[in-house]
């Protein structure tokens, strides 16, 4: 991995990292990738891809309303609100 690739991933993840961190992360991830290469060498023919490490099936819930309006409580942790809306720095696309 190159530090530039790390910077690109950091941008996508909205992480602000400096050059030094990018360099360190690149080298440690390169080590991890070596491990993954080793895993890739294993013969997985006829093995179904794993979607989850737990060998279990998702339990589904009945379609009944169980949540009541908690807006006022939830808004106490928001930096800024107005007229029942969460306010964020302007986003326009």
């Amino acid at each position: 991995m190159e530090p530039s690739e790390i910077q690109k991933l950091a941008n996508l993840a909205m992480l602000d990292i400096n050059e030094e961190t990018a360099k360190e992360t690149a080298s440690s991830i390169t080590d991890v990738l070596a491990l993954i290469d080793q895993l890739q060498a294993a013969d997985t023919d006829g093995v179904a891809p794993m979607a989850h490490p737990l060998d279990a099936v998702q339990v589904l819930r009945a379609d009944n309303i169980t949540e009541s309006d908690q807006r006022d409580t939830l808004m106490t942790v928001a930096p800024q609100t107005d007229s029942g809306l969460f306010l964020v720095p302007k986003v326009v696309e």
Partner: peptide, 21 residues
């Protein structure tokens, strides 16, 4: 009646954020 991953109502036109758990 409810969201795909929560038991909050999906009725259209409610006051903002009153159906967001």
């Amino acid at each position: 009646q409810t969201k795909i991953f929560s038991g909050a109502s999906t009725v259209f036109g409610a006051e903002p954020n009153t159906q967001a758990c």
